[in-house]
Design a binder for these strands. Sequence first.
DNA 1: ATCGTTGTTGACCGCTTGGTAACAAGCTAT
DNA 2: ATAGCTTGTTACCAAGCGGTCAACAACGAT
Lengths: 233, 233
Amino acid sequence: MTPTADCPGHPTPAKARRRLPAAERERQIVEAAAQFFAEHGLGGQTRELAKELGITHSAIFRYFPTKEALLDRVYEHVYVKRWNPAWTGLVCDRSQPLSSRIVRFYAEYTEQIFDFVWVRIFVFSGLKGYDIAPRYLATIRERVIHPICAEVRADLGLPDPETIPLTEREIEAAWAMHGKVFYLAIRKFVYGWPIPHNLSQTISDDVTSFLEGSRFIFLESVSSAEFRKNKQY
Amino acid sequence: MTPTADCPGHPTPAKARRRLPAAERERQIVEAAAQFFAEHGLGGQTRELAKELGITHSAIFRYFPTKEALLDRVYEHVYVKRWNPAWTGLVCDRSQPLSSRIVRFYAEYTEQIFDFVWVRIFVFSGLKGYDIAPRYLATIRERVIHPICAEVRADLGLPDPETIPLTEREIEAAWAMHGKVFYLAIRKFVYGWPIPHNLSQTISDDVTSFLEGSRFIFLESVSSAEFRKNKQY
DNA sequence: ATCGTTGTTGACCGCTTGGTAACAAGCTAT
DNA sequence: ATAGCTTGTTACCAAGCGGTCAACAACGAT
């Protein structure tokens, strides 16, 4: 396209700035790249990205030695600092009923996660085999899944995970709820399929359904784990 | 994998056939292409696919006018005929308890769906904006989600969807279970993350948890829908 | 053998791709 | 101004891409 499209008819066409300070241009490129790669996949072309920025693709390579380096910056920009450290404590704060703790966590969590760029780049890099997804899921397991299981145990008057380690069934029950929430995001941003308009109602239902529905799983799998443990002596 | 791996050292290496009848070669290409595109994405190169087949990329274009045409055949090969028509009736067969019907459906369903090629091509084409995913989800909604909701209604002694239309909350509750199952597939084939070794136990837990946990959602949302309906007169 | 048929090849075309280098256009200080 | 640094563009490269085509190699029938 015409790079200098400042319609030659205008005498003083507001003179849109074409030369930006380095730091600002760099930030601008990263931001546009995140949106761009989320849309077109990680294989999207730098030339097209440049076009959207109104610069040439060579300009991008002034700021990033390679496309890979740009992608690394995009990952950093999208995934770092989106985790609120307060969340971990939130689930364990027993001054409130368990269900409202979990509801509140997922309400805040989805506010960060239900994002076109976040979800799609996550899936794109998962498909490419990058380690973003496994590493992130390991974090979720430690900071969300396990704490929730521990709290459910406490809520049901069951022994804590230190005494009787969490079983696969219990962990999977917690993943079910997490999966439901993330599946909503996939439905929306990957499949382009509508999701319920009342998201907080949905989340609240999911949490209640999880707590109600998986109670017996916790009771059952803990008691059978206890049984196996006692048999050892 | 390598069909013609005739290690050049052998004097009479059984003479692995290089010239195949057209129909067989075509079938072979489609099958290899499905595996290949599932692995490398829909942007994978025909030359590399050809290399895996032990032929040149030109040979592929003898059988398929364009890469797009090959992809169409792959879609057909992967997604057509994987739906068992008996499934629709399965959920509605009231001679058995509802939970075992649903468990059985999802057991059979996952047997078809938990497949590297199926899941990844599904997600790849979803990200590209092809209509495979939305169309498929519409089918799931009609043939699985809605029937399950109707059966839950009947099981709880609630009015059928003809009388009181299904609410968004009820439908979403059923999607929760479906999403959990599909999220397992995504964890495995997209993120490369382990899933429980006892899949049938997990599915059975998920179904029980759904039926137990969403009972109140059905009761509540039906009664409020009835209330709204009566108010009209 | 010889012929036509058919699967396969290798060289080639035009376009796109990430990446480079030389040069032009702004800004700022003197 | 103009020197000097910074920012951006033009023009280019080499490799890779989907797709084409003429020639060739393997078969079956005669």
